[in-house]
């Protein structure tokens, strides 16, 4: 008896909530990005586990697309962080509050 896909999914759920906690509690934009990466990674793990368990190729294809979109997200996100830092001298999201009413 080997570990079933449900164990991989439990691990992925744990990784996902670690990411949620990170996004909700940290102030630094870069750490929030890393937390989002953790969550994307957890979803990838779920896709692969389900794909392997069901013998379906679509799981791996979905992970491939998620990886590409995540890479694009990191590029644009980091460019925004760097631009904000250059203008404002901080990467702390709590100090960027002009748009709150």
């Amino acid at each position: 008896m080997t570990v079933g896909p449900a164990w991989y999914m439990l691990l992925a759920a744990g990784l996902f909530v670690i990411g949620i906690a990170g996004v909700l509690t940290r102030r630094n934009a870069l750490i929030m990005f890393m937390s989002i990466e953790l969550m994307l990674n957890a979803v990838n793990l779920t896709f692969i586990a389900a794909g392997t368990a069901l013998g379906d190729l679509s799981g791996q294809v979905a992970v491939f697309f998620v990886l590409v979109v995540a890479a694009a997200e990191v590029v644009v996100g980091l460019a925004i962080v760097v631009a904000v830092y250059r203008r404002r001298g901080t990467a702390n999201v709590d100090e960027l509050s002009e748009m709150s009413g």
Partner: peptide, 29 residues
């Protein structure tokens, strides 16, 4: 906002873990 974050995280974990266990708990690779 640590308390709120902890509540959100725990609720999400319960939901995700429960769902995946119900769906795949007895599936073998």
């Amino acid at each position: 906002r640590r308390g709120l974050a902890a509540i959100t995280a725990l609720a999400t974990f319960a939901l995700l873990a429960g769902t995946s266990w119900v769906a795949f708990g007895d599936v073998e690779i």
